[in-house]
Nucleic acid binder design. Structure first.
Lengths: 140, 140
DNA sequence: CTCCAATTGCAAAAGGTTTGCATTTGCGTT
DNA sequence: AACGCAAATGCAAACCTTTTGCAATTGGAG
């Protein structure tokens, strides 16, 4: 992925901070908290501030470069949007791995909703559990 | 609903604070934040403290008396669990009305998950939009 | 009625996120 | 290549929500 290109497409300035944040997210195969992102980015840019992290996460989320996940257990997690178009996530509670899922349940209930007069604008469908690797570890 | 009975079933002490919290949730037809619950309960019990609200929300949630909703936009919302068994929610972004939904999409993707070796433990499916009443108001 | 564990109120702390402001910097323009 | 300015950053403080320790109170079993 060309991070500079990605930022330019969005007419965002290419700063070392933004490149570091995106690179950290890219090199992770799962979801990360703001704290985890900060911990990694500060290794690259020792002077970076938490407010820069938050401001950029918000911005990148707005521009559709990131996805945000809010697990039942609380907290907010981010990941790089790797898939084109609408999709959902399957997330491992142990290692944080995020697996994209093309299936979307909305088609199955649109009729029921319109019968109720409800106009859906957004929805979320997230699955939590243990990935292939972590399931095996737990059984052992 | 007999609030005292509900608490006794769970072997929880029947305190005025708990009764007030449940009554507030019962008289709302939708989801409420901890702050909103506090604002209502303090009208009934002027001395109640925020920590009592939080402690009881956690407790009632554990016991399955409440449901917790965490919208994409952030924040945590609570509602009285009115339905028996597993269900999802359709929530109006304007008035907060919560409509229970019996449909659950998990059945449709269990095979795909097991093919991936993923063991699901929890999931969430929430729909946001505008209810019948609020859709009409917006159009006008 | 008595007694004890459960519950509450209070105050302070903790945790995560946001904001105001002065400084710096990316980058379009000259 | 240098300039100028809006955008972005770092810093510190503020904010908001939630949690915690502790002493006082209270529900309800015996």
């Amino acid at each position: 992925m060309d991070v500079e290109e990605l930022l330019k497409e969005q007419r965002l300035k290419v700063t070392p901070q933004r490149k570091a944040i995106i690179n950290v997210l890219e090199s992770s195969d799962g979801v990360l908290s703001a704290q985890e992102i900060f911990t990694e980015v500060i290794k690259i840019l020792p002077n970076i501030n938490f407010s820069t992290i938050y401001r950029n996460l918000d911005l990148l989320l707005e521009r559709g470069i990131l996805c945000r996940i809010t697990p039942e257990s609380g907290g907010i997690l981010y990941e790089l949007r790797r898939e084109e178009g609408h999709h959902h996530h399957v997330i491992c509670k142990k290692c944080g791995a995020s697996i994209p899922l093309d299936y979307c349940p909305m088609g199955n209930i649109e009729k029921e909703l319109s019968r109720k007069g409800f106009t859906p604008t957004e929805h979320r469908f997230e699955i939590y559990g243990y990935c292939n690797k972590c399931s095996k570890k737990i059984k052992e």
